[in-house]
Amino acid sequence: MASSTTGPVVGENKVSGFIFGVIAWIVGLMFFFPIFWLVLNSFKTEEAANGDPVLFFTPTLEQYREVTASSTGLLSFGEAFFNSAWVVVVSTIIVMVLAIPAAYSLAIRPVEKWRDVLFFFISTKFLPIAAAILPLWILARDLGLLNTRLVLIILYTALNLPLAVWMLRSFFAEVPRELIEASQMDGASLMSQIRSVILPIVSPGIAATALLSFIFAWNEFFLAVQLNPVDGSTVPIWVTTAVTTRGLFLAKLSAASTLATLPVVLAGWAAQKRMIRGLALGAIK
């Protein structure tokens, strides 16, 4: 799809175009401001962060040192980060291993009633997690999975699978049918067809889907706090529990928040264009 920006037209006022650009910048900066402020506060001393807002100050890494230092009895940053990375990476890998063949089936050689199948996947997203939490909690307890990383891996996989199937299907559907037929005519086996023809075309889409699945899993809090609040806790739990001291805590909280959210922001920036294209195409094709 050629991304054509509706450019200026003959007769359109250049000034109004400039004004729209300025408004876009202002809106962009406004939306970003809370994040900017968060990061700014994380480099301040507690006194500076709690005082009147200032833009210029001597930055310090003190808060980062403090929140990442481990103290006995409390969930440390290192542990939480390791748990999150473990749970998120493993569940994302499983999501992709399950979703890629499914998407291939739904797009490249559509089975009958593929729309119904796709709708079933999406419809599971209609089930609010809160509605399933009780049986999940009981099942996890009975299976001895409470407070394990495994239970989060399984559930994050289920959480992200529908969206991954949906997005990947639209990326796979972009592979021209003729290309697959051409590879058949060229004598390619199914494996070599997938490896040499399909994967090179869909790999950016696979990367974007994996990143989105990574983002949702990393940010998940509800299941983590219900099923896994003790050992193996993840970063969102760490960030809500790391700073509990009353009094001056804003700078420390900001540092913790910045650390917690940095991986997903980077992943999101990397994947933004394709991520949305995959989501949006799913609606149209």
Binding site: G21, F32, I35, W218, V239, S257, T261, V264, A267, W269
Partner: peptide, 27 residues
Amino acid sequence: RKFFGQGFVRTLLITPFLITPVVAGQT
């Protein structure tokens, strides 16, 4: 529409969506 720094502004704008919900709420 085309304007100076379009891609950058889009990146600024998308960021709130990426922020971990509990972090967003706390912030």
